[in-house]
Write a protein that binds this DNA or RNA. Structure first.
Length: 571
DNA sequence: GCCGTTTTCGGCCCGACTGTTTTCAGTCG
């Protein structure tokens, strides 16, 4: 039972409660608990078994929901959900996922037409029967038909790096509109989440009309969903939704704060404001009718007695308490990075030579890099055997002589074999400056077996770093099941570093796992795993996730100078 | 259903846009 499964049960309960018109705050409680569980690094199943009382410590989870989590983990089901489903078909919740359909309309369609599944909905819409339902008309019927066709595309989140690719030309285009004072992409993009569901674009300007006008005329727009005076929504040809909001400059900070979110963070901040008899909305901070702040984000935070909180931390995961206590971490920045400890060359599946990678790292201002070509078990990547490494090491020696100003470390991405032993002989291993290990096969082992396998590798006295610890590929491959709390514990005991792999489709460790490690005092490494020189620039994405994991420069080993890094590796 | 520097009851973030309405409900973020 994974966290996501428990969260799904709670969301399903919330959907059904909504259809039944239950108390909105009760519904909100289920949704908020689902969100907490979803983003938790520790499996609730483990908590439920070992320390159920710890569940009640989680934000938004009290005695009742804690006991329901225990029930779900123990029995795989929740009596309340069964009861709700008995009264309202659970398939109705599928209708609510169609844009334009919420609980009220879904229920009314069901009660009026007996429609309870997506195929039935489509049939009714095509037959023009939906407009017979009170509150629905031809326009909504069309919206629903369109929504049925693009259901999947609408919900798919895109990788942060892909979002970057859409953002750049869009901003460049919109900048031509007259009167823009400031402009930023807010939302999860600004919080640097590993994936984004849509883009929230914010513009500060006195006259919104010409900006909205230009926005909906963007050549890449496939469909205009909404077009108001200050708010527009469009869908790009790729299926990515972009929401534009235009506010007067005096409100820009409040709007930026509001549209950056997260939702849970906003609610928490607004609660603080209420205690001070203030009201916060996207236009500013108000005492009565008088605006007391709003031009900048810092002003808004100051009005509730807080310092400015970096967007990456705004997830309601303790940042508000930390801000109040003055204990927010000073987050790591890309400029803190002094070297890159995972990359591949033409000797295996990379596209550049050792010298080319080293020169590119030097260009980026690094002091060192590690060449980490694959070992023989990883056949698809052309992994090297002992002789291959000998050739590679000779080339590194040559590059060391020819290139000054950068240290090239001998390393390898050593495959962790099925039984947890390393895919490299001891003699070759002894020649390495840095020993990086990772899993490339048998992803479907049960969690306990996978954990044992990795733990055994971490216990090897020569191992320094565990690479991409969960093996996930965003949108393509789920992380393999593994007990991350145990990995973190062993990493701490053995002094092993855990990698945040900065490949945009890996970002592995995730933000929450990075936080788990950092809180446990385990040091991290941020590496690009570059397979060509251009990919060295992925470093930014790894740093983003480290920031989301509350990491300061001191928490990340490759912010150290070479001497400091060597000391750490020796220890 | 949660929660507490207004603390065990009575609150709970707040506003924009659409479509279908005769003044606003529903949905969305």
């Amino acid at each position: 039972m994974e966290n996501i499964d428990v969260a799904r049960v709670f969301n399903e309960v919330a959907d059904l409660l909504e259809i039944q018109g239950a108390n909105t705050f009760r519904i909100r409680a289920y949704r908020s608990a689902a969100r907490t569980i979803e983003t938790l690094a520790t499996p609730v199943a483990t908590l439920a078994r070992t320390s159920p009382e710890a569940l009640e410590e989680l934000p938004g989870i009290g005695a009742d929901l804690a006991s329901k989590i225990v029930a779900i983990v123990r029995t795989g089901r929740l009596p309340l959900l069964a009861e709700l489903t008995r009264r309202t078909p659970a398939t109705l919740t599928a209708l609510m996922r169609i844009p334009g359909l919420g609980p009220k309309r879904a229920k009314r369609i069901y009660e009026t037409l007996g429609v309870r599944t997506l195929p039935q909905l489509e049939k009714a819409a095509r037959a023009g029967r939906l407009r017979d339902v009170k509150g629905l008309g031809p326009a909504l019927e069309r919206t629903i038909l369109r929504g049925l066709g693009q259901d999947k595309a609408h919900t798919a989140r895109v990788k942060l790096s892909d979002a970057d690719a859409y953002v750049r030309p869009l901003l460049e285009y919109l900048r031509q509109a007259p009167g823009i004072r400031s402009m930023e992409v807010a939302g999860s993009y600004r919080r640097r989440r590993d994936t984004v569901g849509d883009l929230d674009l914010l513009v500060g300007a006195a006259r919104p009309a010409p900006i909205a006008e230009r926005f909906v005329g963007y050549p890449d727009v496939r469909q205009v969903l909404a077009r108001g005076d200050t708010r527009c929504s469009v869908v790009l040809r790729s299926g990515l939704q972009v929401d534009l909001r235009i506010v007067p400059p005096a409100s820009y900070g409040a709007a930026l704060d509001y549209f950056t979110g997260s939702k849970a963070h906003n609610i928490a901040v607004r609660r603080l404001a209420l205690k001070r008899h203030l009201k916060i909305n996207e236009y500013g901070v108000f005492r009565g009718r008088q605006q007391v702040a709003g031009r900048t984000e810092a002003e808004v935070f100051r009005s509730v007695g807080l310092p400015w909180i970096p967007p990456e931390l705004r997830e309601d995961r303790g940042e508000i308490d930390a801000a109040r206590a003055g204990t927010l971490p000073r987050l790591i920045a890309v400029e803190d990075i002094r070297g890159d400890l995972q990359m591949h060359t033409v000797h295996t599946d990379g596209h550049n030579t050792v010298a080319e990678m080293a020169a590119a790292c030097r260009d980026r201002g690094y002091e060192y890099l590690a060449i980490t070509d694959h070992t023989q078990a990883v056949r698809v990547a052309g992994g090297l055997a002992r002789a291959g490494f000998r050739t590679l090491f000779r080339e590194i020696d040559r590059a060391r002589r020819e290139l000054s100003g950068i240290a090239i470390l001998k390393s390898a991405e050593i495959d962790i074999l099925d039984d947890g032993s390393l895919d490299m002989d001891e003699n070759t291993l002894a020649e390495l400056d840095v020993v990086l290990v990772s899993v490339h096969s048998k992803f479907n082992l049960p969690a306990a077996a996978m954990t044992r396998r990795i733990v055994r590798a971490l216990r090897h006295p020569r191992v320094h770093i565990l690479g991409h610890p969960t093996g996930r590929l965003i949108g393509r491959r789920e992380p393999y099941p593994v007990d991350m709390a145990e990995i973190v514990k062993v990493a701490r005991e053995e002094g092993v570093l855990l990698e945040i792999n900065a490949q945009p489709e890996r970002l592995d460790l995730t933000d929450t796992h990075a936080r788990l490690a950092r809180d446990a005092g385990v040091k991290l490494v941020i590496s690009t795993d570059a397979h060509r020189v251009e990919e060295l620039d992925f470093m930014r994405y790894g740093v983003d996730q480290a920031r989301r994991g509350w990491c300061a420069a001191k928490d990340v080993a490759n912010t150290r100078h070479l001497a400091g890094l060597r000391r750490l590796l020796r220890s």
